[in-house]
Structure formats: structure tokens, C-alpha cells
Design a binder for these strands. Structure first.
Length: 588
DNA sequence: GCCGTTTTCGGCCCGACTGTTTTCAGTCG
């Protein structure tokens, strides 16, 4: 009989993953077997992608149940058990005594890996970035075997790159740069095709660099063009088919060139994710195939079997082609093999937007300007959802102002036959779970969003109770930005998110996927869990405060895809009559 | 350390580029 996870409730999967990963890093520096190192990193990645808390898994089935999770074997299961039961891991502490934490930080420097970091530490005693910079300035590195003047320069530049760009940037910051450079590449006569690859093509919420791919029969011209673009700050690497540059804002771009015949294999390869590719290669290997960026080959005969298109690559393995957004090795490979890939929601399915602010509260545009933008986006409906009076900082509307707005919207509906304008509001969920207005006001609205805008530091029980109370409110249709995170600025509220999902499903309240690029809230993993485990429904909203923000829908839809949402899961894809019927179901 | 259509041992994805060395280790994706 297994022990109960005593402290388990305090140890999140992320904390466990970080410790396992750190063990892998330390083993790496200590020169351990590379496969053992990789096994730890794989286990950490697997835990990060696992939606159920490990302490629950452990409580239900002990260490044996943990080994059912891919990448976790007997050893790691035992270590996780120790962590969950005692809150301690002696093995981890032992390693930390051997490898100073500062040394692990050095691994973050581009161009500095475990071997070089270890050498620098062993021979010079350097264990911090600061000490490393000093040593380079005194040219103490170049005398070490395997190092030279060039290495010093590169490491110093790597440190600068790390310091300016050590945080991943938002997808919305990288995407326009990638688009611009792609457009220029495609204009070149020697470029046949060009696309984004990597995390940008998978539309991850943040990206570390930009991967580009193009096909050409004149790779030298492509390389020359790429490294000579005006945006280039410096060239990191330049080869015959691959170059890396850093642009003026510190962002790194990698470009790879292949022949038109190889394009599909290369696009598949460079789109990743790494985990997806490793899994795919394994399947290929078992069947006697070898996949690389040039194609799929028969190992015996070395005959090339596929590679012109991505579809060919997957087809030769008897698979459908998974959409890039879900290539994370979270079940998409199995689904592709069994021909049950989800029919993911697409931007073209979106018929309207439920969360838009105007200058009636803290937005910058008029309702008319918002309508004009909605028409260019081809929408059938929009919801004007300004703040209410209790959110003073956002210039929220009083009841009298709301009544005025209702009249204005009624008049606008008369003028615009081709689009329907609904009147909603974003209620602030206060510290006790109450909202600005009562039933007599809310019943006049078509849609009501409830969101938390303050009191973030309340204890978990209190924060959760606020949301649950709002979910029980029969007039609240949508919970806005449910976890409250702001990427790079604010962590999510400390809430029992599963309790929120459960109540959402039970009360028929929609969960918002806020498309604001620094929110993307709910995030991909939460969407999938809320849908699969609890059966929740969603709206994809932009929370636009400027009419132009309404184009953020693209990022929301991409995140929905990453969460495996289909058209049926998303209220925005239904027609107006269905939307009204579904919203009305919760009303008393 | 993990895993199993190679199943309890023996593999583990695969190739480009750089710098230092002179045939290759280290790093990256």
C-alpha cells in the first residue's frame, strides 16, 4: 500500500519537472552518460505536459501508477515518491553539492554547453556570468585547451544575447518580423518557396527564435541575401545551406535552404516539435525507414521514398498529417495513425467576437469604428462589452449610461442590416464574488462576462470561491480571462482551476480564451483539460481596447488549435440564432 | 534512465556549423 502524498498538495507538476530537469543538467555537466541525461530531460518534459497533478496519480496508484506516464520509469517514480511524501530529495541535494547552481546558469549562454562550462569551472573556478565576463576581459579563457580568442569573442557575444533576449518574446512580437522577412525572401527570383517553421509555425504563445525555411536551386544566393538584409545586427553562423543572424532587437533568426524535392521533409523536420520528431523517427526506424530533413529513406537500400511534401512524409508512415499547432507529441501521432485527428477550429469559422471595449469605458474607438472593423473581418455579429461602474479605473458605465448605450446600439442595429450588434458588459467580480449589477439590470443584456480585475493575492480558497460564486450567477455567460496571467508580468491567480472547469460545465457557463497576445488565457493545456475531462465550452474573444486589436483573434484561434478545440467547442462558430439559444439556456 | 513489432539487454534522431586541431569535439536545433 502506498504512502499518502503528505506534502503533495504543495508540490506542483512544474516544481517536480524543474527538479528532474535540474538533475539532468547537473548530470550533463558531470559528464554522465548522455542517454541518462536525456532520459531526465524527457521525463521533465513529459511531466510538464501532463495535466493531472502527479500527487493525485500517486495517491491513486503509488509509484507504479507514475511509471504509466511516458518517460517515467522505476527510478524517476521512486524519486517523485520521495518528493511527494517527504518534500525532500537527497539525491538532488547531493548533486547540488557537487555542481554549483551558478554553473547551470552558464548553460543558458548560447554557444556554451555542459562540456565548456565544466572546463571553465574546473580550471578557472568560474561559476557565474559576472565572473565569466571578467575572465574573458582578462583573456584568461584563450589559454585553455580547446578555447581560443574566437571562443572568447563568441561567448561574450552569447552573454550579451542572453542578457538582452533571455526571455522568450511573445508570438505577436515575432510574427510580424517573420512575415516581413518571408515576404522579402519570396520576392527573390532564386527562391522557390519560403515558410516559417519551428515554434512560430506551431504558434506557441512565446518564441525563442524564428526558424525559416526555403527551397531554391541556388542556395548560395539565398544565404548571401539573408545575411545582407538591412535588419541584420550580426551574423552568428553562415554556411552553404544554413545561416543564423541576430536582428537589431536581439532576436535570432535561422534560415535553412533545401532543394524543391526536399522541401516537405525539411518543413516537417524544422517545424518540430523536437518531441514530435523524436517519436516520429522512432516509428520510422521500427519500420526500417530513416527520416531526415532531406526525405524518408529505406535503411536497407538507401532508396528515397518521400519528401516533396509534408503529407508524403506522414503518408509513408500510414498517418494523416497533424496540423502544426498540435505537433507536441501529446497524442497527435497516435491520433494521426488511427485517422482520428480532430477537425480543429479555424479562423474562417469565426463569426463574431464577444469581448470588445469602446470609448464608452476604457476603449479608444467608437462603436461605429468597431462595427467597421468587424465588417472587414467578415463577422456576422459583435458584442459590445464595456466595463461597469465599479471598475472606476476603466471608466465603467453607470446604469444610466448603460441604458443610453442600449438605445445607441438599438439604433445602430437599425442602420446595419448586415451585422448584428449585441449589448453585453464585462462585470467585475469583486473580492466577495459579487458583480456590479443585479438581475434587474443584467436581464437587459444579451451577454454578460464576469472577470476578476483585482484582489489577486487572496488565498486560494477565497479566490476560487469568488469565481465559483460568479459561475453560479444565472446571468453570467462567460468567465473572462479565467486564470488572469499576463505573460512576462503576472503569474496566474492561485485558484483551483479544476473546480472552476467543473462548475463551468455544470452551470453552462462558457470559458473565455482571451486572444490578447500577452494573455492567451485559458492557455492551450487548460483548454484541452477543460474540454476532455470536464466537457466545457468556450468563447474566443479579443478583449479589444482598440478596433485594431480585433485582429488578435488569429492568436486566440491558434491557441484554441493548440488546445485541440474543434468548431463545435467554440461559441463564436455558431450562427446568431444558435448563439442566442445557447446563451439563453443559463438564464432563469 | 527509459523502453519493448530489436521485450529484460542494447539501443537511444540526425545533421550543420564552428573553432581548434590536422580528424574531431562541442553545440545547436
Amino acid at each position: 500500500m502506498a504512502n499518502k502524498a503528505q506534502t503533495g498538495g504543495n508540490i506542483r507538476n512544474e516544481d517536480i519537472a524543474r527538479i528532474i530537469e535540474a538533475i539532468g543538467d547537473m548530470l550533463d555537466i558531470l559528464g554522465e552518460n548522455q542517454f541518462r541525461v536525456r532520459a531526465h530531460r524527457n521525463a521533465a518534459a513529459s511531466i510538464r505536459g501532463y495535466t493531472r497533478p502527479l500527487f493525485e496519480v500517486y495517491d491513486a496508484g503509488g509509484p507504479k501508477a507514475l511509471t504509466a506516464i511516458s518517460g517515467i520509469g522505476e527510478h524517476t517514480a521512486k524519486r517523485i515518491e520521495q518528493l511527494l511524501v517527504t518534500g525532500q530529495l537527497p539525491y538532488y541535494e547531493e548533486l547540488k553539492a557537487k555542481v554549483p547552481p551558478g554553473l547551470i546558469e552558464l548553460l543558458n549562454v548560447p554557444g556554451l554547453g555542459p562540456k565548456k562550462a565544466k572546463k571553465i569551472y574546473d580550471s578557472l573556478g568560474i561559476k557565474s556570468l559576472k565572473a565569466l565576463v571578467e575572465a574573458i576581459e582578462e583573456h584568461r579563457l584563450e589559454s585553455l585547451p580547446g578555447f581560443g580568442r574566437k571562443s572568447e569573442e563568441n561567448i561574450l557575444r552569447g552573454i550579451k544575447q542572453f542578457e538582452t533576449m533571455h526571455e522568450r518574446i511573445l508570438l505577436s512580437e515575432g510574427y510580424p518580423i517573420a512575415r516581413e522577412i518571408l515576404a522579402r525572401l519570396r520576392e527573390q527570383p532564386f527562391v522557390e518557396r519560403a515558410d516559417t517553421a519551428g515554434s512560430l509555425r506551431r504558434m506557441q504563445e512565446t518564441i525563442g527564435d524564428i526558424d525559416l525555411l526555403c527551397s531554391s536551386d541556388e542556395p548560395a544566393n539565398v544565404m548571401e541575401f539573408f545575411i545582407s538584409m538591412p535588419q541584420v545586427a550580426y551574423v552568428l553562423a553562415q554556411g552553404e545551406t544554413k545561416s543564423s543572424i541576430v536582428v537589431t532587437n536581439g532576436l535570432q533568426l535561422d534560415l535553412r535552404v533545401v532543394t524543391p524535392e526536399q522541401y516537405g521533409a525539411a518543413l516537417q523536420y524544422f517545424t518540430g516539435s523536437k518531441e514530435h520528431n523524436v517519436h516520429l523517427r522512432h516509428i520510422a526506424k521500427v519500420r526500417g525507414f530513416k527520416i531526415n530533413e532531406y526525405g524518408v529513406f529505406d535503411v536497407e537500400t538507401d532508396q528515397r521514398l518521400a519528401g516533396k511534401t509534408e503529407e508524403e512524409v506522414y503518408a509513408i508512415l500510414d498517418m494523416e498529417t497533424p496540423p502544426p499547432a498540435i505537433r507536441e507529441d501529446r497524442g497527435e501521432i497516435e491520433a494521426a495513425a488511427e485517422r482520428r485527428l480532430p477537425n480543429l477550429v479555424e479562423l474562417a469559422d469565426i463569426k463574431g467576437d464577444f469581448h470588445i471595449h469602446t470609448k464608452w469605458s476604457d476603449g479608444l474607438n467608437s462603436i461605429e469604428e468597431v462595427i467597421a472593423m468587424a465588417k472587414t473581418l467578415g463577422y456576422d455579429f459583435i458584442v459590445i462589452s464595456d466595463h461597469a461602474e465599479k471598475l472606476r479605473i476603466a471608466g465603467g458605465l453607470s446604469v444610466r449610461e448603460l441604458e443610453e448605450q442600449l438605445e445607441v446600439i438599438a439604433a445602430l442595429n437599425e442602420q446595419h442590416a448586415d451585422i448584428e450588434i449585441l449589448c453585453g458588459m464585462e462585470m467585475n467580480i469583486d473580492n466577495d464574488g459579487e458583480v456590479d449589477f443585479g438581475a434587474s439590470v443584467l436581464e437587459k443584456l444579451d451577454v454578460v462576462i464576469g472577470s476578476i480585475h483585482g484582489g489577486f493575492t487572496q488565498p486560494k480558497e477565497k479566490l476560487t470561491a469568488r469565481l465559483l460564486k460568479a459561475l453560479e450567477n444565472p446571468y453570467i455567460n462567460i468567465i473572462g480571462h479565467p486564470t488572469g496571467r499576463v505573460l512576462g508580468q503576472r503569474p496566474p491567480y492561485d485558484i483551483d482551476i479544476q473546480a472552476v472547469f467543473k462548475a463551468s460545465a455544470e452551470t453552462g457557463t462558457f470559458l473565455e480564451l482571451n486572444s490578447y497576445p500577452n494573455r492567451l488565457d485559458l492557455k492551450d493545456d487548460h483548454l484541452r483539460e477543460a474540454k476532455d475531462v470536464f466537457g466545457c465550452m468556450f468563447t474566443i474573444d479579443t478583449d479589444a481596447h482598440v478596433a485594431g486589436n480585433m485582429t488578435y483573434m488569429e492568436y486566440g484561434v491558434a491557441t484554441a488549435q493548440r488546445g485541440w478545440l474543434t468548431k463545435q467547442d467554440v461559441l463564436n462558430t455558431y450562427n446568431m440564432a444558435e448563439v442566442k439559444r445557447m446563451l439563453a439556456q443559463k438564464r432563469p
